[in-house]
């Protein structure tokens, strides 16, 4: 994180500038950029947990998407059962329902993450092939369980009044929820920054991402640290699920696995194990997706793959790889 390599940061203005030229309409460009950054912050919330999990234990969870889905659906359930508070004109009641939804999603995703770790990931440490296969199986089973609990039809989520609509600054309409998502994502980033720089556990995780064996040789059981990190990563995915669900306002059982594709792209772009890289990658992917869906909607996902390809051409390990392995 405290690297002085600033070159990758230049990608942001470059991408924004190119998009500006392609779009040609400043207001549209600005709206898309805001939307992209907000989306990026949501993706970051999920990706930051996953990239650390990978960095620390070399575990790549192809089923991470399921925790996004769990978070999104749990928050939808909270919103539905407390709908009085959602539509209430009082900000305090709105905030309360959001808080409850976030707590439910984080707890639910964290707990299912713990189960997932015990049942599926733990037996296959150190074996990528098995991890990929087993966690993919876990994703499918999880998605089916979601369908059994919540049904296959799409579920709608309504935003509370203070988050719906837009406010206008200098002729540009900014949707309130996007600003909120941006703030929430920034908070997540700042929180992680504090944990990673100010707490011993954070230092241990950073050290472990770089050299797990050395952390063990200093006398720390990395297994327990890893389980805690894995569960936190799942909880973050659940939080990302809440944010993403409110962003989309309609949920389908595949919401998590769809987003997971973007998360993977972000992790690869950012460099495995790097929180800062994940942030930059997420914003790049977010704005790129939004620009592309405006310019040529049919190739939106390909635009991100193209972005990733170009970045890998430049830096085969991603922008800020943290893991030395």
């Amino acid at each position: 994180m405290n690297r002085s390599d600033l070159m990758p940061l230049a990608l942001l203005p470059i991408l924004m500038g190119c998009a500006y030229l392609a779009i040609g309409n400043p207001a549209a460009w600005f709206t898309l950029t805001i939307a992209g950054v907000a989306m990026g912050m949501i993706i970051f919330t999920v990706a930051s947990g996953m990239t650390i999990v990978f960095g620390l234990m070399d575990v790549l969870n192809f089923g991470q998407g399921i925790f996004i889905t769990v978070g999104a659906y749990l928050s939808a359930t909270v919103f539905a059962s407390l709908s009085g508070y959602v539509v209430s004109p009082y900000l305090s009641e709105n905030l309360l329902v959001i808080l409850v939804a976030v707590v439910a999603a984080v707890a639910g995703a964290g707990m299912s993450g713990f189960l997932f770790e015990r049942l599926l990931v733990k037996p296959v440490y150190g074996d990528h092939l098995m991890q990929i296969l087993v966690t993919t199986g876990g994703l499918i089973v999880g998605e089916e369980i979601i369908k059994i609990i919540w049904g296959v039809q799409q579920v709608n989520v309504a935003l509370p009044p203070f988050l719906s609509g837009a406010f206008v600054i200098a002729d540009v309409a900014i949707e309130r929820y996007r600003a909120f998502a941006f703030l929430a994502g920034a908070l997540v980033f700042f929180g992680q920054y504090l944990v990673f720089t100010r707490t011993k556990t954070g230092l241990l995780i950073r050290a472990g991402v770089h050299d797990r064996e050395m952390v063990e040789a200093l006398g720390y059981g990395v297994r327990r640290l890893f389980v805690a990190t894995f569960v936190s990563g799942c909880a973050l995915a659940g939080l990302g699920g809440v944010m993403w669900g409110l962003y989309q306002q309609t949920l389908v059982p595949q919401i998590g696995s769809q987003m997971n594709v973007l998360v993977f792209i972000v992790i690869i772009i950012g460099g495995l194990g790097s929180t800062g890289g994940a942030l930059l990658g997420a914003i790049l992917v977010g704005i790129c997706a939004n620009y592309a869906s405006f310019i040529e909607p049919k190739v939106a996902l390909f635009s991100n793959i193209a972005l990733m390809t170009m970045i890998l051409l430049w830096r085969p390990n991603g922008l800020y790889p943290a893991s030395a392995r």
Binding site: H128, V261, K298, F302
Partner: peptide, 29 residues
């Protein structure tokens, strides 16, 4: 060329993204 150069696990991630993209593309075009 892009995914196997660094580490084999990139390959799985990238192919997953590609298969999702191919599905959308096939329905879009």
């Amino acid at each position: 060329l892009f995914s196997l150069r660094v580490r084999a696990i990139f390959f799985s991630m990238i192919t997953l993204a590609l298969s999702a993209a191919a599905q959308t593309l096939a329905t879009q075009l």
